Amino acid sequence: MSTEERLKLIWDFRGPDAHKIALHHEIHLKEYATAQTLNTPITGTQQVTEDHSIAFLVVDREAMKPVRDALKPHRGQLFT
């Protein structure tokens, strides 16, 4: 894995189908990461509450701006 600083880009989904939508969004994040040959991307989902889930993509800091501009995440944070 890269020793470079990594960022977690996050998409929020709310409502009764939030987790199902987050799981589907993760499929597209994986496809994008493969198509763009991102360096060791990490994708996943997390159910925050019954009506709030997230999908995320972890990327190297250098890849963040092009990914952010293309995919428009709702927010981001440092990945530890």
Score class of each variant (00 low, 15 high):
Pro73His: 09
Ala63Tyr: 06
Asp17Lys: 06
Ile21Val: 12
Leu7Asp: 00
Arg61Phe: 06
Ile27Asp: 09
Asp17Pro: 00
Gly76Pro: 00
Pro16Met: 11
Asn39Ser: 11
Val58Phe: 14
Glu62Arg: 10
Ser53Ile: 06
Asp51Asn: 15
Glu4Met: 09
Arg68Cys: 03
Met1Lys: 08
Gly76Tyr: 13
Ile42Glu: 14
Thr40Arg: 09
Thr45Glu: 08
Asp51Tyr: 15
Leu78Trp: 14
Thr43Met: 07
Gly15Pro: 08
Phe13Trp: 13
Val58Arg: 07
Leu71Trp: 08
Asp51Trp: 15
Trp11Arg: 01
Ser2Val: 10
Leu78Ala: 12
Leu29Glu: 06
Asp17Leu: 08
Lys30Glu: 14
Arg61Trp: 02
Lys20Gln: 07
Gln77Lys: 14
Ile10Val: 12
Asp12Arg: 03
Ile10Thr: 04
Arg14Met: 14
Ile27Glu: 11
Arg61Ala: 13
Lys8Glu: 14
Lys20Ser: 11
Ile21Met: 08
Glu26Asp: 14
Thr3Lys: 10
Leu7Ile: 12
His19Tyr: 15
His25Asp: 03
Pro73Gln: 03
Asn39Ile: 04
Lys30Asn: 07
Thr49Glu: 13
Ala35Met: 13
Gln36Lys: 09
Thr80Leu: 10
His52Gln: 02
His74Arg: 05
Arg61Cys: 02
Ile54Phe: 05
Ile21Pro: 00
Glu50Met: 08
Glu62Phe: 03
Gln46Asn: 04
Tyr32Asn: 10
Ile42Trp: 09
Ile42Phe: 14
Gly76Lys: 01
Asp60Gly: 04
Ile10Met: 04
Ser53Arg: 03
Leu57Arg: 01
Asp60His: 05
Leu9Met: 12
Glu62Tyr: 02
Lys72Asn: 14
Phe56Leu: 07
Asp17Gly: 07
Glu62Cys: 02
Gln46Gly: 02
Arg68Met: 09
Gln46Ser: 11
Val48Ile: 15
Phe13Met: 07
Phe56Trp: 14
Thr40Gly: 01
His28Pro: 00
Arg68Ser: 06
Leu78Lys: 09
Val58His: 11
